[in-house]
């Protein structure tokens, strides 16, 4: 019996040689290394994004998933890390990304057309390795299609980034990775922030039919799964979508205080 077991063990080890180091050795769970998500409120809620693990961010539209993605990309590229975005719905906006502080030259953007392409591209990128953050954006894919992705795909992704410094971030509408995710974060949209335009010194604006300015909106984040901590909730203030309506092609001139408005849209429309 013992001889058979030893023979079987050596046979398995031989088959896995070069791919798995010591498959029968006990692997102690390593300490999770986390880095900033780029949003202080999320960091205090989750402890940061774990390296070498799958982070799942899900929620309805306008719940701040893209804002969180851009914040994370901005933080990682600021650290000179190469990042990759596998865009399942081809919805990424380079303008708002650059306005959010993402260094675009350090971002590999893969524009996919469907779930199959997205999963295949993720496999290829994770096999290549070396990226600080790999984000898989399935936000624009219908949930019924993402639900059909077999669980072993998420498990394979998790295993691919294990023991690497890569952060694998999955964005979707519903949670699908389940136990394969080390961190699950549910986002919910809050109220939009609007403000009246400043009237002083802006005579032209007073004649405009739409006298409101979009400042942004808030979003609510809730940890649904975490290796480090159990279900807690917190809030973070979503980004300001307001913008100074800078004269584009010389049509408008404004005296609005630029600092009052957020950078992203300002940059988009300057």
């Amino acid at each position: 019996m013992a001889a058979n077991f030893a023979a079987l063990r050596s046979k398995v080890e031989l088959a896995l040689a070069g791919r798995v180091v010591a498959p029968f050795n006990y692997r102690d769970r390593q300490e999770v290394v986390t880095v900033s998500s780029g949003i202080p409120e999320i960091d205090s809620l989750t402890g940061g994004l774990p390296r070498g693990a799958l982070t799942e961010i899900f929620g309805p539209s306008c719940s701040g998933r893209t804002s969180l993605l851009l914040a994370a990309l901005s933080a990682r590229t600021a650290q000179e890390e190469a990042c990759a975005l596998i865009d399942g719905g081809d919805a990424f906006d380079p303008h708002s990304a650059e306005a959010a502080g993402v260094e675009l030259r350090k971002l590999l953007w893969v524009r996919c057309r469907n779930v199959e392409q997205t999963l295949r591209a993720t496999d290829l990128l994770l096999q290549g390795g070396g990226f600080g953050l790999v984000a898989v954006d399935l936000s624009d894919i219908a949930p019924r299609l993402v639900r059909h992705v077999p669980l072993d795909s998420w498990f394979r992704f998790r295993r691919a980034v294990e023991d690497t410094p890569t952060i694998l971030m999955l964005l979707e509408q519903e949670s699908n990775a389940k136990s394969c995710a080390s961190l699950g974060l549910r986002l919910q949209a809050g109220a939009a922030g609007w403000s009246r335009m400043p009237v002083e010194g802006a005579a032209d604006y007073s004649r405009l039919p739409g006298g409101w300015l979009l400042e942004g909106r808030s979003a609510r984040g809730e940890v649904s799964r975490s290796r480090a901590q159990k279900g807690s909730a917190g809030y973070f203030r979503g980004g300001s979508a307001a913008e100074p309506r800078v004269a584009s092609a010389g049509i408008f001139k404004t005296r609005i205080d630029w600092d009052f408005f957020s950078l992203p849209i300002a940059a988009k429309r300057k």
Partner: peptide
């Protein structure tokens, strides 16, 4: 420089997050 200052891409306190935009193509 960042390591010397103990930073790890930490956002400045009080800084607001930029809103992301998704484009329809």
């Amino acid at each position: 420089k960042k390591l010397a200052s103990g930073g790890d891409g930490e956002p400045a306190a009080g800084r607001r997050t930029a809103t992301g935009c998704r484009i329809f193509r």
